[in-house]
Amino acid sequence: MTEDVFERIANLARLGPYPAEDKAKLSKDFGRILELFNVLAEMPPDGEAERRRGGEAERKTVFRDDVVKPFAEKNKIIENFPEKEGPLLKVPKVIE
């Protein structure tokens, strides 16, 4: 894996930047894992489009009834907030 590709993937994954040492180790592991994946190229293609099955026993979309239910856990979620100021919850700026 080239450094460029690694940097691009890490950026997409919102990880890094890594110190040189970690980057070298991760790239090396990555290379070994990709070798493992390359076995898949030996699998004869069967022309059939990817069929959605495998783990899913009966694949159909299941909808719950669209009913309004009171949500009791609001305060518990607020308790998980790391920063508060008075009654307000503090979040970093998330718009540019």
Partner: peptide, 8 residues
Amino acid sequence: RRILIGTF
């Protein structure tokens, strides 16, 4: 490592 593999 796994997040990177998956993203890739």
